Simulated scan of single mutants.
Amino acid sequence: MKVAGTVAVVTGAAGGIGYAIARRLLEHGAQVVVLDLTARTVEAAVDSLSRHAPGQVAGLAGDCSAEDDLRAAIDLARARFGPVGLFAANAGVALGSGLEASDTDWAASVEVNLLAHVRAARLLVPGWLDRGRGYFLSTASAAGLLTQLGSAAYSVTKHAAVAFAEWLSVTYGSRGIAVSCLCPMGVNTAMLHDGRQSADAVARLAAKAVADSGAVMEPLDVADAVLEGIRDERFLILPHPEVLGFFRHKAADYDRWLAGMRRYQEALA
């Protein structure tokens, strides 16, 4: 896909990976609407991003899992720049520890990590089919291909995000809609820092597992991998290339991989 001239919406774009993706899209000639929860952080992100691409970015405070807010972001993009050609479903949450995660934690994880993607696709895919083109970028996680020590809700919903992206690609990939699924390991973001500093021992273990399993990358480096993957219309975008090796080991001998993950968990405890 050619990014220059594309109109994009990026969720969770006030910081971290989402901000970095928005910045790289703008630097490569896209026009971007950023969607995040609070007006203050969205305004700060738009101000900062505007320095890289004056007049090419707009922002909206809203909930990426709420259909009305998603529609408002898509409508804003259309009014300011034109029809949305790329949607980056980037926002995510990591809530709850193990079986102690509450039903509220699980519900929020499903809403943000999965159903936000489904609702965005419902709004965009019909128009993309009419135009014969569109691009859906799903930020999942290496946890969606492997697993996440500590947080069942995060691991399960990230697996679901990968599965939904796969389904989109299988169902619409021959009709002009491209799909990519971003699956990084450790990234230097607030989510990782919050886990490292958590009062909850399980959350700290989960963060340590991520940080110790490979290099902790900077968000802009992840965004560079995203732009390369979009250019090539590649489904799996793996900023940490070792994830592919782990994934292959898992598929080749599931029981051996599970035993290895148990040993890794014990070593971290």
Results as ranks from 00 to 15, higher is better:
residue 185 M to Q: 06
residue 84 V to R: 02
residue 52 H to A: 09
residue 192 L to H: 06
residue 61 A to C: 07
residue 59 G to W: 07
residue 221 D to W: 12
residue 65 S to L: 12
residue 152 A to L: 15
residue 198 S to T: 05
residue 252 A to G: 15
residue 35 L to M: 03
residue 49 L to D: 02
residue 146 L to H: 14
residue 130 D to V: 10
residue 262 R to C: 01
residue 96 G to V: 12
residue 26 L to A: 05
residue 39 A to K: 06
residue 109 S to F: 13
residue 236 L to A: 13
residue 162 V to C: 01
residue 100 E to W: 07
residue 141 S to G: 09
residue 204 R to L: 05
residue 227 L to C: 03
residue 92 G to L: 01
residue 54 P to K: 08
residue 71 R to N: 13
residue 175 R to L: 04
residue 12 G to K: 02
residue 136 F to T: 01
residue 55 G to H: 13
residue 103 D to A: 15
residue 259 A to Y: 08
residue 212 D to L: 05
residue 203 A to K: 03
residue 59 G to A: 08
residue 4 A to I: 09
residue 74 I to Q: 02
residue 188 N to C: 14
residue 10 V to I: 11
residue 47 D to A: 07
residue 225 A to L: 04
residue 135 Y to H: 11
residue 216 V to H: 01
residue 252 A to H: 14
residue 252 A to R: 10
residue 241 P to W: 13
residue 186 G to M: 10
residue 198 S to K: 13
residue 239 P to K: 04
residue 211 A to Q: 09
residue 149 L to V: 04
residue 193 H to M: 06
residue 73 A to C: 11
residue 95 L to S: 04
residue 167 W to F: 13
residue 174 S to V: 10
residue 243 V to Y: 02
residue 111 E to W: 02
residue 130 D to K: 12
residue 199 A to K: 12
residue 250 K to T: 10
residue 211 A to C: 07
residue 71 R to H: 03
residue 22 A to Y: 01
residue 153 A to P: 15
residue 204 R to M: 07
residue 64 C to N: 07
residue 63 D to V: 06
residue 118 V to T: 09
residue 185 M to Y: 13
residue 102 S to C: 14
residue 6 T to A: 01
residue 190 A to R: 12
residue 151 S to F: 01
residue 172 Y to I: 08
residue 70 L to N: 11
residue 205 L to M: 05
residue 165 A to N: 04
residue 153 A to S: 14
residue 53 A to H: 15
residue 13 A to M: 04
residue 221 D to Y: 13
residue 10 V to Q: 00
residue 139 T to K: 09
residue 61 A to V: 00
residue 82 G to Y: 04
residue 70 L to R: 06
